[in-house]
Design a protein around this nucleic acid. Structure first.
Lengths: 348, 348
DNA sequence: ATGAAAGCGCTAACAT
DNA sequence: ATGTTAGCGCTTTCAT
């Protein structure tokens, strides 16, 4: 009634039935540790032994328990990614490439949403650290000094992305928001625009771009001071609708505006839509520039000028940073500036 | 040199220094299991003991190791979600709500991308099962019978979403693609449209909608048979650009078309864009209906009629299915049809 | 190339 | 209400 007496009986208590490495080893006629080596470091095992273990794995359908492996080896092969929200298209490209790159190296992604506030940040951090991930990829957030301290104290490799902070927690892959915005200002100036304006999300990063844009505009002699560049703020995350509203409000205040820099492509698409609805010609009467170069930007009418951020490259870089660190490889540089590119299309 | 002799020395070997439940217990002057109870089932612990343990946790900055906890209790508090790609906006809303709902119950999301092919499906499955998640949420995929068999054999609760298959692996929350498409056909017919057409992604689910649409059109007397409803296929994932191309091709073949049902809102936005560029009036000359009711649909010009799928509800339902199962609560019904809603706006 | 022993950090059982 | 004991399934260390 109790099945196999020698070892089966002792398993009956907990855990429940799954096939373990021990079962595989017994079937192959080797010790558990040899079976383990056959799976993890096949080079250390005699070919004939290897074959027997593999045969046993195939027969049983054994799938190694990574929880146990992670506990024993202190390597979970889990990487946590924190995004403000997955439901904005901006970070998707990065998360996609991060997931793919990690999977290729045998790592799995854990996703956490911080929201745009720092309220749940602490609980999220606890949940993450509790899993003992081999790395954490941060996108933009981690406002609280306390959170940064805890992460640092945990000893987990951290990659911050989408930005170039002067004082990174650990590793960093991003670009300069200020420089990007300044280059857009120069681009519009070169195109003969003189009445620049901003339609922007109210998050910190976008506002940093706004400052870069306004400062450069002042430098170009387009305003006496930064307050001379009108800004319409809309709540994050941005939508097509908020772009339409933004333009409507902007035109009420500053009818003579001849160029708008939007903090996202969605916002810019809203501006294009509203401009078309009002019969405002783009780009002849109004130039529009977006940010992100999302999939649709090249195909709008007119095609949207924007700032291209290579989210795929960011994700790939972040993955390799963490995998390198986890495998004990030396990381040559801890900070990578992936830059950006102002893509000129029909809308400007 | 060796630090604390009694227990410290034995930790020096592996693991490396983290604070453990044992440390907390010692500091609080209780046994490890009492400390464990103080954290997990505080009701079972005397208030004064509880306070001492909490104090010790605060002093040490202890964060429980969930790998160890999961191994011991056979409950990982990890849930795996599989999506074709995170980089399509369609599933984002669901993933977002799934992540949030799970986090609320103390569960964490692991993300896996299957791609639109079934090549990596097996490796992904192995990675997932290896983590012993408390549940798996599937979106659309799991083509291979072998994969379904392995999942079933693993004993992990499974929720399939976005569809209503007749033979679910386990639990299911979705809606009928065929019914949704049929209702769109009726809607267009009611609006006086007689020359219907489809612009659609080439994935299985979209094509199922196509069949539902065409069959209903035939039933309404709009064509002799399903092949009388023209279809333009574009590759998944869909983009604004492919919508423009789709309409262009469609008009070449069938200039007299007066209504298009698109398999996604992005596609529909492309159709609106191309129509505007060609001076084709929407809806008077051409009606357009999308699918998904993404964030921008209500704000396009004209506003986009579409099929609303409540991704948030799907995610929440899937989460509660899995959490209920994990906590041992009885699940009343294993299949939930969340339905859909045809949202009539300006474009039709 | 293989194995024995000892634990990783935690919790389920079974006391008391 | 608290403690003791025995693992969860794997891998490290140290032998052979």
């Amino acid at each position: 009634m109790d099945g196999s007496s020698s070892t089966g009986s002792r398993r009956a208590r907990r855990g429940g039935g799954g096939i373990t490495l021990g079962d595989v080893a017994r079937l192959a006629g080797v010790s558990p540790i040899t079976a383990s080596r056959a799976l993890n470091t096949p080079g250390q095992v005699a070919p004939e032994t290897l074959a027997r273990v593999r045969e046993a794995v195939a027969r049983t359908g054994y799938v190694p328990n990574r929880l146990a492996g992670g506990l024993a080896s202190a390597r979970s092969r889990l990487v946590a990614a924190v995004v403000p929200t997955i439901a904005g298209p901006v970070f998707m490209e990065m998360v996609q490439s991060l997931t793919a790159a990690l999977a290729e190296s045998g790592y799995q992604l854990m996703l956490g949403q911080s929201g745009y506030t720092e309220s749940r940040e602490d609980a999220l951090l606890e949940a993450i650290i509790g899993r003992r991930p081999d790395g954490v990829v941060l996108t933009g957030i981690m406002h609280s000094a306390e959170g940064r301290r805890r992460l640092l104290a945990s000893g987990i490799p951290v990659v911050e992305t989408w930005d170039l902070t002067p004082t990174p927690i650990d590793m960093l892959v991003g670009f300069s928001h200020v420089d990007a915005a300044a280059e857009v200002a120069r681009h519009l100036h070169a195109k003969g625009r003189r009445r620049l304006a901003l339609i922007s999300a109210d998050d910190e990063r976008a506002q940093r771009r706004n400052r870069g844009f306004a400062d450069e505009a002042v430098r170009l002699g387009l305003a006496a001071d930064a307050s001379g560049i009108p800004v319409e703020l809309v709540p994050a995350p941005t939508t097509l609708g908020s772009g339409r509203i933004g333009l409507t409000r902007l035109l009420e205040r500053v009818p003579e505006v001849d160029a708008v820099f939007c903090s996202s492509d969605m916002l810019a698409l809203g501006v294009l839509t509203e401009a078309a609805a009002r019969g405002i010609a783009v780009p002849s009467r109004l130039a529009v520039v977006g940010f992100g170069d999302l999939g649709f930007a090249a195909d709008t009418e007119p095609a949207l000028s924007t700032v291209r951020i290579d989210g795929t490259a960011i994700g790939r870089r972040a993955a390799s940073f963490i995998v390198d660190r986890a495998e004990g490889r030396a990381v040559a540089q801890k900070v990578v500036d992936l830059g950006f590119r102002v893509v000129e299309r029909g809308s400007s």
